[in-house]
């Protein structure tokens, strides 16, 4: 991630904000200017719940470039408490423990480091609820 990208996305990545359509009530996690459902432009930024349940998961054993040291790592689709679906890494959890893990909560972690200049992208991940 470049410096402007990190700066632009920090609020959403640090605090898990999303976009709620004031007209139809649909809430999105991914950035929107117009509601995907009702096409209203009246969207507000909202804080999304920091807890949810794992909908499905996978254990990545063949990573992309730059994530080799983390293998094996767990990627999950998470249904937040308000029903919004997000993708995140599940940490502090071994592949052998993930099948019985359901409830998860937000943590603050390093997402990636720029290979050349070292710039760090911080943001949310999830861990089994404590």
């Amino acid at each position: 991630m470049s410096a402007p990208e990190i700066w632009r996305n920090a609020k959403q990545r640090y605090n898990l904000t999303g976009y709620r359509c004031k007209k139809c009530g649909k809430t999105f996690f991914t950035k929107r200017i117009v509601c995907r459902k009702c096409k209203s432009k009246d969207l507000e930024e909202v804080l999304l719940p920091w807890e949810g349940a794992i909908e499905t998961y996978t254990v990545v054993r063949s990573p992309i470039d730059g994530y080799e040291t983390k293998v094996p790592y767990i990627i999950g689709l998470i249904k937040l408490k308000n029903g919004v679906r997000i993708l995140s890494e599940i940490v502090d959890c071994e592949p052998t423990e993930i099948e019985k893990t359901k409830e998860v909560e937000l943590v603050f972690r390093v997402l990636s480091k720029d290979k050349e200049k070292g710039l760090i992208t911080y943001g949310f991940k999830f861990r089994p609820k404590t």
């Binding site: 640090y14 040291t69 983390k70 940490v91 502090d92 943590v107 603050f108 972690r109 760090i120 911080y122």
Partner: peptide, 16 residues
Amino acid sequence: PALDEDSTTFAVEAAR
């Protein structure tokens, strides 16, 4: 630390 933790992530967790 976990592989994706550093003193900054610790600081944030403690502050929260």
